[in-house]
């Protein structure tokens, strides 16, 4: 009884070490249980809240699972046609250079239909942040093969596994944009554990900071899961991701000039 009282005593506003940011709206996220999209939304909202830049930030949602980003983060948003978010961001940033502009795109959006917009925005060095969620599959349309689907991986349009000879190779957009002179900070992260969430949050915060300094395009890939379309539990999907996705998509910074200077 005493213990219970003591436990309840802890639950007081003054003792809060973590609570959901008010910059997330009250809408219940439509994502499947355990989906990394929700986590990345929350991280972005937390950073905007903590940095106090709500009135200076414009987000761009893609076509795909995260089309409804604008329902969840309490900021001004535009919804782009499939793959075109970097084009929108380019104009928004150039017309309002003092605002923070970020796109949020999945792998189908960014690495297939929007390849040209992505590469050219990065190559021009637009002062924007591109957040790239890579779960190796088209989630919204029901689990079709994506350009990032790893060899042998099953999807509804590669039901026997991705046959590279017939279906082509996976594409590593993050590695490609890291080679472009317009990008300043390029990193690959994940959100499947608390330590990785903290790293991703640090990376995205850094990208906002670099945008303020007008350093060029910042590109943050988050290798993520899709429990529903991978047909696994969320915990299993994260394990599968570590074992199967990370060898193709190793985590870490691909380009960070300030870090290189420190060395």
């Amino acid at each position: 009884m005493n213990d219970t009282n003591q436990m309840n005593d802890i639950i007081k506003p003054g003792n809060i070490v973590y609570k959901r940011t008010d910059l997330m709206t009250d809408d219940i996220l439509h994502y499947c249980p355990g989906c990394g999209h929700s986590t990345v939304h929350r991280i972005i909202a937390e950073i905007i809240d903590e940095e106090g830049i709500q009135s200076e930030t414009i987000g761009i949602s893609p076509v795909g699972c995260s089309v409804y980003l604008y329902n969840y983060i309490d900021i001004d948003c535009q919804e782009a046609a499939h793959g075109r978010a970097p084009a929108l961001a380019t104009a928004i940033k150039r017309l309002m250079p003092d605002k923070y502009v970020f796109t949020y795109q999945g792998d189908g959006d960014l690495a297939a239909i929007g390849t040209a917009e992505t590469i050219h925005a990065c190559n021009r060095g637009e002062n924007i942040l591109i957040v790239f969620i890579n779960n190796g599959i088209y989630g919204m349309t029901g689990g079709q093969m994506a350009p990032t689907t790893i060899p042998g991986m099953k999807s509804s349009t590669s039901p026997y596994g991705r046959d590279v000879e017939m279906m082509g190779n996976l594409i590593k957009m993050t590695d490609i944009v890291a080679t472009l002179p317009g990008t300043y900070f390029v990193t690959r992260q994940s959100v499947h554990s608390a330590v990785n969430v903290r790293r991703t949050k640090k990376a995205i915060r850094k990208a906002f900071h670099y945008q303020k300094l007008k350093k060029g395009t910042c590109f943050v890939e988050v290798v993520s899961n899709c429990p529903s379309n991978w047909k696994m539990t969320p915990v299993e999907s994260n394990k599968w991701m570590e074992e199967n996705m990370f060898p193709y998509y190793p985590l870490g910074d691909l380009k960070d000039p300030e870090k290189q200077q420190e060395k």
Partner: peptide, 20 residues
């Protein structure tokens, strides 16, 4: 121990963590 790892990894942000 109020480490907040649960809340930080929670996709839906449903956990509030307290510590003393």
């Amino acid at each position: 121990i109020g480490c907040a790892n649960c809340a930080i990894v929670c996709p839906d942000g449903v956990i509030t963590v307290y510590k003393i």
